[in-house]
Amino acid sequence: MTTETADPGEAEETLPEWVTALGIVDKDSAIELAKSAHEKITAATMSAISVTDQLTVSHLVLMGMTTRAQCLAMATSDALASENPYSTFTLLRSYFENAATLVYVIDKPGQLGQLWGDGDGHGIKIGRIVNHSRTRFKQGKHIYDQLSKYAHPHSISIVSAMQIVEGGRFNWSTGPRFKSPEELLLAAAWLLELTDATAGLIAEFSRRFFRPSPNSLGKASLQD
């Protein structure tokens, strides 16, 4: 269902250079790259888990976290292909929380048990995890806040289905769609960035808990 009325035009959005640097130049390239994003998580996980065949709580936590990461990456890719911004950004928010949790337990290994043995409790508060992620993701909190505006009934998510189209006409649709083509490309870029960061954190988790190493992986970063 679509409704149109006359209204002033809106300014054209510009795609950031860091997005095109990822190979994202249009909708087709964005969706194609998003489809294969989860493969990096799979490869990183297989390398990390193969370090030892003796399972510990650390292994079990990492297995669960990497399964979450892979499933969230795949679901986000599907949401992108369906051009559903509500599902896409809400899933990206969960994907960010997953990566932020890896950062938290790597830096605070004493908190690992709360992820495993606190099924009936509140676990580690997500606000504490997200705030701590600033140590790795300089723009992470800002991006998380933006994603939250789609996950919640915020004005940004409410007006997402509304556009100013050719001729300065107001367009509203009851079906899912991104507010602009650039918004879809940015979402795909965030997916790729989060996947790269997560793959690196999986490797770092492996070194931190499975084999001692004085060196940490280069700090992951997220673009804005």
Rank of each mutant, 00 (worst) to 15 (best):
G23R: 05
N131S: 09
A79Q: 08
H38I: 12
A6F: 15
G110I: 00
D78Q: 09
I126C: 11
R93E: 03
P214C: 02
L191C: 06
L55Y: 07
A79D: 10
L60E: 07
F210S: 01
L112S: 12
T90Q: 04
P212T: 15
L201H: 05
A48S: 10
L72P: 08
I24S: 04
W116N: 11
T3W: 05
K141S: 10
A44N: 01
T45Q: 07
Q146S: 11
A188I: 11
L22S: 01
A73L: 08
F178P: 04
A44M: 06
L186S: 06
S36E: 12
Q163C: 10
L91N: 04
E12A: 14
A6S: 14
P214N: 13
L60G: 14
T20K: 03
V25T: 12
G119Y: 02
Y150N: 06
P176V: 06
E83G: 10
I158D: 03
I158M: 15
E32P: 06
D107M: 00
I31Q: 03
L22A: 02
P212L: 07
A197F: 02
R136A: 12
F89C: 05
E17L: 15
I106R: 06
E97H: 07
A151M: 00
K108P: 10
E204G: 10
G119F: 04
I202K: 01
I49P: 01
A21C: 13
V130E: 05
W172H: 15
T45L: 13
N84I: 07
V19I: 12
T76F: 00
P85C: 02
T66R: 13
A11P: 08
K141G: 03
L15N: 02
T174I: 11
L91Y: 00
P109G: 06
G175D: 15
L80Q: 00
A100F: 00
A151F: 02
A199W: 02
E182N: 11
T3G: 07
K125C: 11
I143N: 12
T174A: 12
K40Y: 04
L102I: 02
I164T: 14
R68G: 09
S221P: 11
L147R: 09
G127Y: 01
R208F: 07
E10V: 15
L112K: 08
G168K: 03
K40I: 08
L91Q: 03
K108Q: 08
A187F: 01
T174M: 12
T20P: 07
E83T: 05
T66Q: 05
T2V: 15
W190R: 15
L91F: 00
V159A: 10
L72H: 07
I126H: 09
T67D: 14
S148P: 02
G110R: 04
A203V: 06
E183F: 04
A44H: 10
I41P: 09
F96S: 04
N98I: 03
Q111T: 13
D118Y: 05
E12D: 15
D120L: 15
H122I: 11
G9Y: 06
S77M: 06
G117N: 14
A161K: 09
Q163P: 04
Q54E: 15
Y144Q: 04
G64A: 11
I164M: 11
P16N: 01
A43T: 09
